[in-house]
Design a protein around this nucleic acid. Structure first.
Lengths: 132, 132
DNA sequence: ATATCTCGTAATAATCGTAGTTACATGAAG
DNA sequence: CTTCATGTAACTACGATTATTACGAGATAT
């Protein structure tokens, strides 16, 4: 989206990503709520970037998408009657929190503009290899 | 298990944990492969702790259970043709790796004996409150 | 106007990974 | 030789995510 000019339809994005337009809309709706994109209906409608990519980080994206759970393991019941489970949770929670904080710090240090740059670099490399 | 003497059956453990004996056996099989528990069949059979709890950490447990994925987000395809996905992965992988390393360090600092202590403390507190 | 395009969203279906269950074989103790 | 317990394969159930279908509402072009 950053590369093109003018709106991009959900259908086009879905085709790019090998998924479904409705799925795209669902996620984009989150980004729109965060003010990162705009959507317009009808002819020539679609999605447009509505923010300065240099000022939006992965942390912002994560937050706006509802802060989905980061970890796949641990904590079946946060509030359990079981003393064993409580003990394990007490010990693990600190560790998980530390790891999550670190991860979020890292996310906060990556802007979308940097991702675009990363992509541009890869594209350039690919094109140079094609020339050979 | 640390509290009792003698083997504990899968059925007893399952009852404790509100799950199924076979599920218990599946996980315990992993621990047995790591040499942390023993199992015996037949009359008076069951599971026995076979290690020094002060020398086994959560990191060891995680490793022996196949190092299940720690994160719930990120990396749908580690090797993707898509340049956008590659760019995102490249940036995220560092962050995930850092967070995972930190988490594993923490796990490595928690022994099973410490968990038992934590549990004993909670048990004691609970009993004192019952007295009142 | 009206046909067309596009998002918005609810309802439903498909998919996938985990957990639970059943069934039966194997081995040990009484 | 009966009973108890693990070992394991096969199957079922469940929950969460993703995909699909269907239709409404607004915007644009002709």
């Amino acid at each position: 989206m950053a590369a093109g000019q003018g709106p991009v339809t959900s259908e086009a994005l879905a085709a790019c990503m090998g998924t479904n337009p409705v799925v795209v809309r669902r996620t984009m709706a989150g980004l729109r709520n965060g003010g990162f994109v705009r959507s317009e209906k009808g002819h020539r409608g679609g999605w447009t970037i509505a923010c300065d990519l240099r000022r939006v980080t992965l942390r912002d994206i994560h937050k706006v998408l509802g802060e989905p759970a980061v970890f796949a393991i641990g904590n079946r019941n946060e509030t359990s009657e079981c003393l064993v489970e409580q003990s394990v949770n007490a010990v693990l929670d600190d560790a998980f929190e530390a790891a999550e904080t670190l991860l979020m710090q890292r996310f906060g240090n990556v802007t979308l503009a940097e991702l675009v740059d990363e992509f541009s670099g890869r594209l350039k490399t690919l094109e140079e290899n094609r020339k050979d």
